[in-house]
Design a binder for these strands. Sequence first.
RNA 1: UGGGGUAUCGCCAAGCGGUAAGGCACGGGACUUUGACUCCCGCAUUCGUAGGUUCAAAUCCUGCUACCCCAGCCA
Length: 573
Amino acid sequence: MGMETTAKKTNFIWDFIQQDLESGRYQSVHTRFPPEPNGYLHIGHCKALVTNFATAEHFGGLTNLRFDDTNPAKEETEFVDGIMEDIRWLGFDWKGGLFFASEYYPKCYEIAVDWIERGLAYVDELSAEEVRTYRGTLTAPGKNSPWRDRPVEESLRLFEEMKAGKHPEGSLILRMKIDMASPNMNMRDPAMYRILFKEHHRTGKTWCIYPMYDYAHPIGDALEGISHSLCSLEYEDHRPLYDWVVNHAQNMLPSAPRQIEFSRLNLTRTIMSKRYLRMLVEGGYVSGWDDPRMPTLCALRRRGYTPAAIRDFIDRIGVAKADSEVDLALLEHCVREDLGETVPRAMAVLKPLKVVLTNWPEDFRDELPMENHPAHPEMGGHTSVMTKELYIEQEDFMEVPARKYFRLFIGGEVRLKSAYIIKADSCDQDENGNVTCVYCTVDMDSRNGSEGAKRKVKGTLHWVSAAENLPVEARLYEPLLMEENAEVEQEDAEDASAPAASQKKDFLKRLNPESLEVCHGYMEKSLGDAKPGDTYQFLRMGYFCKDPDSTAQLAVFNRVVGLKDSFKKAVKA
RNA sequence: UGGGGUAUCGCCAAGCGGUAAGGCACGGGACUUUGACUCCCGCAUUCGUAGGUUCAAAUCCUGCUACCCCAGCCA
């Protein structure tokens, strides 16, 4: 048996579609990505985004971008602009077209009138509370509204009056006439239209009645010729309603789309609910929607995540129907893999410790060449200047070495990257016992590239000249949420009786107080012409992306992600 | 207690009656002027559970259990 040369990657959705194509139910594939413009896109949305775009692409079809703007109370133009920018940034193009659900208001109205005439819809005068009561419960059937069987002419007249603004908000709704006893709550005469005297970001004051999602969505899909409407699992219960709408409006619609649901993305230690993200922004817990700790795309972009990394991540997690929570480590792996290959290396010391090279000639400066990428000579190089005084990382020196420590310590030797081998002789300490300066002797014969450099030295450190450097502010990020089941003992004691569910929801208690650490250090001068958005690997420290907060005097860098660190792990154990 | 879903390694996830892919994480080793990268090696006799059918079951049947979603004039 021959092994297949290319592993065919598919998923249950593609399998369904393949069947649909083979059976002739559909001739081609057309999908849509339908965000509501009431907030910014986050990493969770990317799964739906990529799934819709990649599916169409796989079958040679197109994808539409459609803003689901049927609730003027929550939607703004700011968000439609932001969403389009984010999608473009990710590299997707809505070749199928750009649409707004609000474009279909006239058609929706037309169908609604048709349904009233055909006895499929009626105007209800029950209050919101009464509607809820009449709907019944999960286990008890609902009962018909007293207005359910009112004359067609009456509903017609009332619906026109609703549209004409003659009735106040909440006084009337238009409902589908399906089945108040259905075990599926969605089928108990769902609302089609409600009265809302809100200005819409696109239609202005043209309308004061707005269609509900369950009514407008299938119509929008059908009008756009969508073949497969891919959405998340919570709409599974809505599928019978989706089909009901399509079937009963068939005479006025060009096609009948198929809805397929998949599970949404959850990430460990990450808040994915729009509502909670809003609380973080409005509560001042973060600096804004693009605070680099946020899971929004604008924040990930600012932090230094790349479209390639995000798409690779979505690709790797797969598409299925089981509830899941993906380990953040996978996302981090994806950025490291991308950045590691594409980004230049440079040196920056984030928590500086002064080093004096006692035997270094007083005013001698040595320009040392350094490659931009060890595996890609074509990426060129730059020079780093070595002087008598320099900085190394505080954690790279210990007066007496711990076990397995092969950085600098008194009596120990270490190599300075691309430079010389040095040996620590003594150090100064302040009144608290903190080391303030290390005195070293240089092996002047060990300059990088020379014969004397060909010695085995266990540790290699990054460094920056104390005389020739640029100041840098480095912002180090950790997840916004602490690990599950981590240090909440105090609260736990108080809330011992609280239901687990509510504790889980109380994400504020899980907020990580150390999600942001700001360091002030020094970087080599070659980094001086970095522009906001440029990313480097700061040797041994991680990947850093220059932030727009930077000024002419101070460069600000966001840590995208650290390097893998087997030393830290070994020490912890 | 009604309806709709889901259960395969720590986390994702293939598998579609023929004897458990892959990735991440993790552990070990080699290499190393980044304790990074790269490269080897290891990592489910077992598929929520109990039965049944079969020469053969993660895959078929039956019962049970756990978890998720639904009672917006939100999407």
